[in-house]
Computed example of a mutant assay.
Amino acid sequence: MTQLELRGDKQVNTEDPVVAEAIARALGDELRRVRETLGLSRAAFVRRLPSGIGDRTLLAYEHGIRQLTIVRFLELCEGLEASPPDLLAHALQRAELHLSHLKLRVDLNKVLSERNMNFRPLVQWARNRLNHTPNGIIAMSPDAILELAAVVGHPQDDLTRYLCKFTPDPDPDEAAA
């Protein structure tokens, strides 16, 4: 039985159709986000692909109706000129799935505008980090999140889920890099 950490410490069977659907939907959403950021229609994107998949197949992937094979996922990432590990990590972060092993990407500017009093110390932390982060986007390892959780006085799982609120929007330059 394959297991996946889903939203905190709860263990869930990855063979469960609900879990599989959540993963497929998260991955499809991220593929669509990157494609749209690049300004590509579905039709224009599928013309780039060597496999010759159709618009409907891409639509099914983007809506999580159809699960991707690894080979097809790699082909789509190549067509988008996107890093497969990064695209997968972004998808899982946005969906808040399997977070304990991910490097979270956090938009510090979004943190500055947050008014949640439970995590108020993060505003000053974000302000200080912006002094050394010109684009305002940082990647935080699970160890860094653990240390920050100790500083702000919250469990790591709570802080991790909270930081997911500040996932950066797709950057067209990064998507094409």
Rank of each mutant, 00 (worst) to 15 (best):
G79N: 04
V71G: 10
N116I: 09
L92P: 10
I137E: 09
R66D: 00
V19M: 10
E75C: 05
P121R: 00
V19E: 02
S83R: 07
G8E: 00
E78S: 06
L68E: 01
D29M: 14
K103V: 14
F119T: 07
G52A: 06
S51E: 01
H101C: 08
L76T: 08
I53W: 09
F119R: 03
E78F: 10
L31I: 15
F45V: 05
P84D: 00
S51A: 08
L102W: 01
A22M: 12
L49H: 06
H63D: 13
R25K: 12
G8D: 05
A91D: 00
G28P: 03
D16S: 04
R25V: 03
A126Q: 01
V19K: 05
G64L: 08
N135M: 12
K103T: 15
L108R: 01
I23L: 03
L59I: 12
G79V: 04
L74V: 03
D9N: 14
R25Y: 07
M117E: 10
L4V: 03
R120D: 02
E75I: 01
E15G: 00
L38H: 09
N118R: 12
E96H: 13
F73K: 01
Q93N: 09
T69E: 04
L112E: 01
L99E: 00
R7G: 11
L130S: 08
L38W: 11
E62P: 08
D16N: 10
L122Y: 00
E62D: 10
R94P: 10
T69Y: 00
A126P: 01
E36A: 11
N131D: 14
A89N: 06
L59T: 13
L104D: 04
P84M: 03
A43C: 11
L130A: 11
L122S: 00
G64I: 02
Q11N: 07
G64W: 03
A91Q: 03
E15S: 06
